[in-house]
Write a protein that binds this DNA or RNA. Structure first.
Lengths: 337, 337
DNA sequence: TGCGATTCTGAAAACGTTATCATCGGCGGA
DNA sequence: TCCGCCGATGATAACGTTTTCAGAATCGCA
């Protein structure tokens, strides 16, 4: 049982069981029937040796890969983590395994390095989380020949996309706030993957439709800290009574900033988040938000990829709607101007 | 450029560049110097063909694997996701890639299936997130010969562990609350990986040291929803003035429950969480918590594994302390009994 | 100028598995 | 009884790399 001996190979099993190498292979894969007697001997030998097939060798000869790479700029933020979870679940059920590589920035060298690292391993296909610039950059550096799908809030490019229709969700949320009597709605933005910024687009559309001026977008990046600062700043102004946030974490930071600036939510200012973070309902005030099913997005992404791998082509997109969930953080504007 | 043609191999590159196969290999790996002229031709051919080395073949011949498997029961909860992030980061920097497999329950069949799926691929080693029963179960089903390390809140078994010393953290938090004047501290528990329940142990220790009776543990599983119910229930009792929670999400749920039961935090009841969830400081009231560096736990786990892979042995454990962060959710008990 | 050392190169072997093909035995039908 | 077929089996050939190993060319030095 010394650590230095190499792992047992199929040859060792065959020798111990007194059969040929292909027979062992047949027992393992079940591709061709093998007599009961030999099957038993082979299984016993496998157990005795603790044999485990060498995946590299198997992958080499079959040419079939069963790992898919996921490229993402982050794995901990709610939307990212949950999408990843959905992908992993669907992949595992289909007998695939997911490899995860994070792409920290959209700086070309870093993107290329991450892509190279991921693709230095034999993968059947790739899912890229195209929520932001690093994701979009990665998408452009993937070789043509590779089966690729993107999971994102927006669509575009040539690859199949699984999308979340956040545009309609943002429109609904904005219209909801306007309907409450707010004169306008401000928007605190998350990063986007390019020209297509679904949430901002939906928000603008609702304002434009209502004939309301579109206030400048407040950029917060991904950092709740930054949203907190924006909240403190907004708290000092009396022209803002409703704020839509690019995600729920930002909404949290914003609400804290407003709180510290002495403004009450929703009495003074309404806040609506985005994503449907599971903690949102426990916050005080409970967060009104636009719920999105990220786990489903992940599952659909994998489904698209699976179809691509199987048939060589697939639907261009798969879309699902977001849904406004009204809780406590939103309400009519204060009566006094 | 038809989709059906197989990917270019090193042979195609060699032919196009007019050199031998090993020379191409040498250019790629840089193992042995190759003349400038041939190097250029090879690189040009690689670019033209879009050649990418076949990882399976490479792994087969070198015997060196560069993927590590991570086994976890969840990838979205704060501690899990952040540990995973740390592992991925450290692995990527070392040229490794991580494969993630989730083990949904500790039911033997499911555990075995997940382990088999993960190990059906060539991996250099395994990191298991042993925060809970599924993790502990997976650890026991891994073959002896495989390099394995566990990342967990507690240590034990034969494999190297990277641990977070939550016992001391729980003791500190409990002592802090007692020091504030609370007669006792209640504990809302998360699941544990076995006999060793660091947080509960630390909490009990502090109570015992102070000569205080240990109230029954309130089990909440992982669900904030359950903690919310416990909060509503606790809100109806006047003998509880301080509650320590197994994690921050539970603390959130609990606070909401207390809020709905008409109790104020911290005026009526103090709440202390665990983990240092990044949102905690934005909650109202901002959450007092025991901060743990999960990303570092992940990095240390990989460091242990890397050492194990390199030298064949490694330190038994690597530990890091938790740190109490006092914010707004805790304070002295109400003056009236 | 000759000879050993050094540098680069290609032929061939090896890695562990599955796929292909031929062989062998037994069985049913004529 | 013989022929053809089918099912089980093993020998052999892939798969795409890297690693020997040996040969050729160049270089340095006496």
């Amino acid at each position: 049982m010394s650590r230095s001996t190499r792992a047992p190979s199929i040859t060792d099993v065959a020798r111990l069981a007194g059969v040929s190498v292909p027979t062992v292979s047949r027992v393992i894969t079940g591709s061709v029937p093998v007599s009961q007697e030999r099957t038993d001997r082979v299984l016993a030998a496998i157990r005795e040796l603790g044999y485990r097939p060498n995946g590299a060798a198997r992958a080499l000869v079959t040419g079939r890969q069963s790992v898919i790479a996921v490229l993402a700029s982050n794995t901990t933020r709610y939307g990212y983590a949950t999408t990843l979870q959905g992908i992993e679940e669907a992949a595992r059920l289909a007998g695939f395994i997911v490899m995860i590589t994070v792409i920290e920035t959209d700086e070309p060298g870093a993107v290329q390095a991450a892509v190279d690292l991921a693709l230095s391993h034999p993968v059947a296909g790739v899912v890229v989380l195209k929520f932001d610039p690093p994701g979009a950059a990665a998408l452009h550096r993937l070789p043509e020949a590779l089966p690729v799908v993107a999971a994102s809030g927006g669509r575009g490019d040539g690859v199949p996309h699984a999308v979340l229709d956040d545009t309609a969700g943002a429109t609904a949320a904005t219209e909801y706030l306007l309907g409450l009597g707010h004169r306008t709605v401000h928007y605190v933005a998350v990063p986007t993957s390019g020209r297509r910024a679904g949430r901002a687009t939906g928000w603008k559309r609702a304002l434009t439709r209502a004939g309301v001026d579109v206030p400048p977008v407040l950029d917060a990046g991904w950092e709740p800290e930054r949203a907190y600062e924006i909240g403190r700043e907004l708290g000092g102004r009396d022209d803002v009574t409703a704020v839509l946030c690019g995600n729920d974490e930002l909404a949290m930071g914003l609400m804290r900033g407003l709180h510290e600036a002495g403004r009450r939510v929703p009495a003074d200012i309404s806040v609506v988040g985005f994503d449907g973070h599971p903690m949102g309902r426990f916050w005080t005030p409970a967060l009104t938000t636009v719920e999105q099913d990220f786990a489903d997005l992940g599952r659909r992404s994998f489904a698209l990829l699976g179809e691509l791998l199987g048939t060589g082509h697939t639907a261009k997109t798969s879309s699902s709607a977001a849904r406004l969930v009204v809780r406590e953080s939103s309400g009519p504007p204060p009566v006094a101007g």
